[in-house]
Nucleic acid binder design. Structure first.
Lengths: 210, 210
DNA sequence: TTTTTTCTCCTCGTATACCATGATTTTTTC
DNA sequence: GAAAAAATCATGGTATACGAGGAGAAAAAA
């Protein structure tokens, strides 16, 4: 691995700045042969004909979904190492990426050293996670909040509340009693451990439950 | 401007990748002397002692608000040209940045050519906007909701409310009367045209004002 | 079919959000 | 230094959210 043959690295990102940044960070290390792509489909075509050792893949692309793309890449070229790069720091997304065959995950705020370390790790067959990603994964309690499971009715009501509707209005439009609405409300607060509905809606919105 | 003296450019961004990318893009053009910063306060300190021609400023920073930072920079060094760089493509934010003294605005998906063009434009005293930014500005019709501008106090209070705090608690911790807090609350609702605080917090959360 | 979950309804009391209107002082801007 | 904007405090009233605790019927899961 560390002999004379250079390591082929493909960068996939639709931001020219990031692409350029990664390129210059990696070029400083000499051992890499770098290819870059701004489109998801382009990398798929490329690996059809060529062999790539490591692919650094942006999760958010304009023309494709990084998660699905990872899967496709792994199908076409199982030996290629795929490392995700993203601003997305959400547990569930990281896990889904790894489930789809990803060999590692790096946040965009990582520095040069960390990126190189991760690539080295991945080349040795290990799971390559940046420091922050490791923290996110290993602490389900702190940074990421365990989202409670909601019933259909609760979702319905939560949605209505988030749209600014009062309990009375909601009761009216769902043909149930105001009292019932308030019970659901209460249960929702307990489930989310929120101090009040405002905090609850904030949590739900942040976690895209609405 | 185009003679032998190099142009001093400061890059402010908390993502090492972006920083590195910009640096290498600009270095290819030779005429620039580049300084880079990952902290907002650092650039403020720096311009106290040194003269900078152009500052490329990320709007989203970990330790500071790009909008306020732009204002501070312009106060300390009015002759410096400040160009905003961001993923944020919202009209209102762009306008606010320009109102705060910004000389231009570029989206992060801009390519090398565009960035150089914008810097050149700004050096000539013109407003430097990337293509996409121009489109956003010239199309007020789009679905994007005009975000109201909030005062410092309003932001503070909105944030506290979103954290589930009651008016009484907020009044206590800010050393003001409950009545005042409720006035701000009322004004916030009017500004956002929200039916109640719950809806307001949802809107604010969705638009990342918190 | 039994058990569990979900949805529904109930009471009572307190807290506070919400609405309309107005006014003074401080700070910022021109 | 004048004008505008922001922050502060005030009154008074209505509506409703919030919190605790209990309970029966319907639907889903075992």
């Amino acid at each position: 691995m560390y002999n004379n043959t250079p390591i082929n690295i493909a960068l996939v990102d639709d931001h020219p700045m990031i692409l350029e940044g990664l390129k210059s960070l990696l070029q400083q290390h000499g051992r890499f042969q770098i290819f870059s792509f701004t489109k998801g489909v382009a990398i798929l075509d490329f690996i059809q004909e060529n062999t790539i050792d490591v692919i650094l893949l942006d999760i958010v692309l304009s023309d494709a979904n990084g998660l699905d793309l990872c899967k496709s890449i792994k199908q076409k070229s199982p030996s290629s190492i795929v490392i995700g790069i993203s601003n997305q720091a959400e547990r569930s997304i990281i896990f889904r990426f790894l489930e789809n065959g990803g060999n590692g995950y790096i946040l965009k705020n990582a520095d040069a050293q960390e990126i190189i370390q991760c690539i080295d790790k991945a080349l040795l067959g290990e799971l390559a996670l940046s420091k922050e990603v490791q923290e996110i994964i290993s602490s389900p309690s702190t940074s990421t909040f365990e989202l409670p499971r909601l019933t259909k009715r609760e979702q319905q009501i939560l949605q209505a509340i988030a749209h600014g509707q009062t309990s009375a209005k909601i009761a009216e439009s769902l043909f149930i009693s105001v009292i019932t609405v308030e019970t659901h409300r209460r249960n929702l607060m307990q489930k989310f451990k929120a101090k009040n509905m405002i905090e609850l809606v904030k949590i739900a919105t942040e976690n895209k439950l609405l």
